[in-house]
Design a protein around this nucleic acid. Structure first.
Length: 416
RNA sequence: GUGGGUAUAGCUCAGUUGGCUAGAGCGCUAGGUUGUGGCCCUAGAGGUCAAGGGUUCAAUUCCCUUUACUCACCCCA
């Protein structure tokens, strides 16, 4: 027995409708925001993620699915969605189109992590990326897309956390200040934080160890060290959110795990789906396009975990769509009926009905049970008696009524 | 990478203080007379009791190891 790789999940036929439900809702919203779909490969050159996401991040340093292909190229399965889109933006000269460029995608992403509730090695993300606008309005429109998705799915209790982590200029200053602050207290902090002090002091703020959070309380806040431009940007983002009556927490502790973020970072968090509560995370990444070889281009976007979104819906008891059931089940129970069955079924299908029929030569009783389990709306019985007069029996499964219908009137009859 | 929990039928779970053919409910298949679903009844199929080793006259039950799953840390969607 060969089983499914660790941390992956089959999407089985009986739950496919849930994915269609959220994908339809989401792509409809994307359409109304005038965002076009982009599809990029599931794998890219490893170099793209090294440069784009950052070599010191956990994602790149220990979680990537990387291998050499037969041409000895180092290839990596997407660990996130943004870098590939940025690569395509540059490679296909999308900057030459009228700006901004607004794109969305659904994609599987792969990270070699230890699976747990809400965390898989392959999961799926819906993401959007807006290229070309440095304006706070773009940040807010991006947040609005996520907000609209949650609203229209009925999810109202997510917390929106926002922060600004500044630009490379002010972050360098802040990093220095942070280092000085933590250097004083480092003896009292956990081992990981000791290591973070040199590599990436920003991460210390995110530590959940009690002794560290205690010290973190008094740590200098990034917002106090933003340059005028970043400060101004952040204030405008908040003002716009206020004007739209969108509730948010300014949380100076949130630090996203990808190096490319600048200025605005945000996340929508649920407390209903276990410890892995971030359903949507994103922000501005003004430096990424340049990192992957393009001209400096401001950009902002987010990624949303579809599995976590579904978990949230289910744990809140919200609708997740309904399974499709057949309009008609056709039950042939005599030789003549069997012979004409597929032809009739095809006629009905060509008329737009979803139609199931018997592929197992079962008894009428068994077929009725089957039709009932499928939740078919009508059963059409092809039996000897009625076929002699070019009729069929039509049974309405909800009411139990049966009626004799002329073959040539069948489509009409089922239509009403 | 670090910790905790679990492992008996397709699913949810009983059970044996070690002892003949290992159970239930649900699901699946077929029936309950001649061509009609849902409720009810009957029967059937389906298990190397996660795998390997040990103790024992005897192990699914006790012990050890491994694997898988799961939750949490870390990190993230």
């Amino acid at each position: 027995m060969i089983n499914i790789p660790k941390g992956t999940k089959d999407m089985l036929p009986n739950e496919a409708f849930k994915w269609h439900y959220v994908q339809n809702k989401i792509s409809n919203i994307a359409r109304r925001f005038c965002i076009n779909e982009i599809r990029t490969p599931v794998f890219e050159h490893t170099e793209l993620f090294l440069r784009g996401v950052g070599e010191t991040t956990d994602i790149v340093s220990k979680e990537m699915y990387t291998f050499l292909d037969k041409g000895e190229r180092s290839i990596t399965l997407k660990p996130e969605g943004t870098a590939g889109v940025a690569r395509a933006f540059v490679e296909s000269s999308l900057y030459a189109n009228p700006q901004p460029t607004k794109m969305y995608y659904f994609t599987p992403v792969f990270r070699y992590e230890k699976p747990q509730n809400g965390r898989l090695r392959e999961h799926h993300q819906f993401g959007i990326e807006f290229f070309g606008s440095p304006e706070p309005m773009a940040d807010v429109e991006v947040i609005m897309v996520a907000k609209t998705i949650f609203n229209e799915l009925g999810i109202t209790d997510l917390t929106l956390n926002i922060n600004s982590i500044g630009c490379p200029k002010c972050r360098a200053v802040y990093n220095q200040v942070l280092k000085q602050f933590f250097a004083k207290n480092i003896d009292k902090m956990c081992q990981t934080c000791k290591e973070r002090l040199d590599k990436n002091p920003l991460r210390i703020l995110d530590c959940k160890e009690e002794r560290c959070t205690e010290i973190n309380k008094d740590a200098p806040v990034v917002l106090d060290y933003l340059c005028d431009d970043c400060k101004n940007h952040h204030n405008q983002v908040m003002a716009l959110l206020d004007s739209l009556n969108i509730a948010y927490n300014v949380n100076p502790k949130i630090v996203r795990g990808l190096d490319y973020y600048t200025k605005t970072v945000f996340e929508f968090v649920s407390n209903k789906i276990g410890a892995q509560g971030t359903v949507c995370g994103g922000g501005r990444y003004d430096g990424l396009v340049e990192q992957v070889g393009g001209k400096p281009t401001p950009a902002v976007g987010f990624g949303m975990g579809i599995e976590r979104l579904l978990l949230t819906l289910e744990n809140l008891g919200l609708p997740v769509g309904v399974e499709d059931c057949p309009d008609v089940y056709v039950a042939p129970i005599c030789e003549q009926g069997k012979q004409m069955c597929l032809k009739l079924v095809m006629n009905l299908r060509n008329s737009g009905f979803s139609v199931e029929t018997d592929l197992l030569s079962r008894s009428l009783k068994a077929q009725m049970k089957f039709a009932n389990k499928l939740n078919a709306k009508f059963v059409v019985i092809l039996g000897e008696e009625e076929l002699q007069n070019n009729n069929v029996t039509v049974k309405n499964m909800a009411t139990g009524e049966t009626s004799l219908v002329a073959l040539e009137n069948l489509v009409l009859n089922l239509g009403r």
